[in-house]
Amino acid sequence: MFNLSEEEIERYSRHIILPEVGGGGQQKLKQSSVLVIGAGGLGSPALLYLTAAGVGRIGVIEDDVVDLTNLQRQVLHATPDVGKAKAKSASETMQRLNPHVEIDIHQHRLTKNNIFDIIESYDVIVDGVDNFPTRYLLNDACVMKNKTLVEGGILRFMGLIMSIRGGDTACYRCVFEEPPPPGTVPSCAEAGVLGAVAGVVGTLQATEVLKILTGIGKPLYNRLLQFDAEELRFHEVKAKRNPGCPVCGKKPSITELVEYDYACETQAPKP
């Protein structure tokens, strides 16, 4: 039922020739579904590689519009797309790259009211969000629904990657318990980001997804990988499930989803 056509076998031949992937692994990718939150700096490379790799169904959540300042790193979009909805621009690029991929577009923001319904039908979720409130919401939802999440973050010349099997391996809150107070961590808009750093991190996220879907190698579970482009160094930090974690610990204080305020809240609002 998920047999590959002649054209697909040729298209994916450099995958299929890898003994670790083979025809079976390529069929697994075709049967899989991945949701990428954000079609920006991280989402662009992640979506391009997942599309090229032949993941059967790819969801994109994005409600923003392509801006000229995005084009320095958001490689899904091109100059004629400025002013266009990013979701539309992303889907056009992906469709051109690989028409075998089914693309679901979700043109709205993730909220505590819609997140469970949206993530439910996907095998793996990729975090390419541009803010802390959604990052924590996504982590908590994936822990509560035992979903696999591939985290990524970038700032200036640095990047971070971590894979999470919700409810099983260390989650984002096990390491970063609460969001930093608003205004303390500069945004990419304020502090800048080297465009290619987004490419490195988003591509590593796609690599993790492809490994997880095909069962190849060891995912970055219980490990946090930090990338420093200035020194060109990777630094791995072991992360353990934190028994005191507010969402996946022994006595979680967060049992319902919380949405942090974008403006000036420092404490989690009541669920």
Binding site: G38, G40, G41, L42, G128, V129, D130, N131, F132, R135, G153, I154, L155, M158, G159, L160, F176, P179, P180, P182, G183, T184, V185, P186, S187, C188, A189, Q226, Y262
Partner: peptide, 8 residues
């Protein structure tokens, strides 16, 4: 490092 992306 906290690396959140865009808006904080």
């Amino acid at each position: 490092y906290f690396m959140g992306g865009g808006i904080v």
